[in-house]
Design a binder for these strands. Structure first.
Length: 345
DNA sequence: AACGCGGGGGC
DNA sequence: GCCCCAGCGTT
């Protein structure tokens, strides 16, 4: 049997029962693919179910407020995916008259859709023989063909795309594309794959050369940046203050407490003399206390955010305050959600 | 070509 | 602590 027949055969025996495998509705396939970008199936699944429930059609999604979409997305990360998802839903609904594009070259024009996602949708929904090359596929091909070109180099991207193009089952691209990804996720796993039971173990190049552990090769990225966040949890009688992050930075469009960021850890005297603090307080009396003596370190893949929450009680009333009981209606970073969960207003 | 973008889980 | 995950957009 050929490589792709073995993969497809393995898939039919071993595939997981996942909700997006029961449909070819481009809306649902697109939704699932966006959610699964750099995201494990187990993490994305509950979000997919939530979205399909709230937004049964692309028009429902298009007609929702962006803040609502972001709230549903809260905790899934890479929030630009949610903003692009929403913008694309509006585009397809109102510019394309609810007709989801049906070819790779049209699909890839959509915001938030790149080569991988366009290939996935075109093949799964429309039987176009466009190969998907995601992290799973890189791993399976690098190992089976014993290739040590870095998968995230320009040469590697081109090489593996070409290889995948030669291998795709042109008769059943939808099944084959999903098969090789599932095979990578469940059989040819990143760590300790059980090669003893692999259907390709008698022809796998990396296994023969004992190079499973070193393949695929990936150029590692830069260092982690440390940032120091001081959140001002303003409280009067029963209100607090939230603001939206507008900068091109992490958590764009999400809400948070007023923030004082600095390149180092700040003391109380630094906070109370900071311009941002003074402008928030005006002439009002206040009472400030530090909620967490030890900074909470929120670890992201590319930065560590050392966070202190300062509780600021004040006498007067907050302008533009929101009832603290309504914080949960806003999309906030997990860091904030954890605090709100723990702190009793 | 390199970097920024989340959060969770495995070891 | 480091790596990985059904990648994409920007610089």
């Amino acid at each position: 049997m050929t490589f792709n027949k073995i993969i497809s055969h393995w898939y039919r025996k071993n595939k997981r029962d996942l909700p997006w495998r029961k449909t070819r509705d481009p809306y649902r396939i697109w939704l699932s693919e966006i959610m699964l970008q750099q995201t494990r199936v187990e993490q994305g699944l509950p979000y997919y179910l939530k979205f399909v429930d709230h937004y049964p059609t692309i028009k429902h999604l298009a007609d929702a407020p962006e803040d609502e979409v972001l709230k549903l997305w809260q905790g899934l990360g890479y929030y630009s995916r949610a903003r692009n998802l929403h913008a694309t839903a509006r585009h397809v609904t109102y510019e394309l008259n609810e007709n989801f594009p049906s070819t790779y070259s049209e699909i890839i024009k959509l915001k938030g859709v790149g080569d991988y996602t366009a290939s996935a949708i075109a093949s799964i929904c429309f039987d176009e023989a466009t190969p998907v090359v995601d992290g799973n596929v890189y791993r399976v091909l690098a190992r089976y063909f014993n290739v040590d070109i870095p998968i995230n180099s320009t040469e590697g991207i081109k090489y593996f795309k070409q290889l995948a193009t030669e291998l795709i089952d042109r008769e059943q691209p939808a099944e084959y594309n999903q098969a090789i990804m599932e095979f990578g996720a469940r059989q040819c796993k990143p760590q300790s794959p059980d090669c003893g039971i692999c259907p390709l173990n008698n022809s796998c190049g990396a296994l023969a050369e004992k190079r499973i552990k070193e393949l695929p090769v990936k150029i590692r990225k830069g260092k982690i940046r440390n940032r120091y966040f001081n959140y001002l949890v303003m409280t009067d009688k029963d209100s607090t203050l939230l603001e939206q992050r507008k900068q091109k930075d992490i958590w764009q469009s999400l809400y948070q407490f007023p923030l004082i960021e600095d390149a180092r850890e700040l003391e109380e005297k630094d906070i109370v003399s900071h311009n941002r603090f003074l402008e928030l307080m005006g002439n009002r009396e206040y009472d400030i206390s530090l909620y967490n003596k030890e900074a909470i370190v929120h670890k992201l893949s590319h930065q560590h955010i050392h966070t202190r929450f300062w509780i600021v009680h004040l006498q007067g009333t907050l302008d533009n305050g929101i009832k603290s009981s309504r914080i949960k209606e806003y999309a906030v970073p997990v860091l904030i959600a954890n605090f709100v969960e723990e702190y009793s207003f």
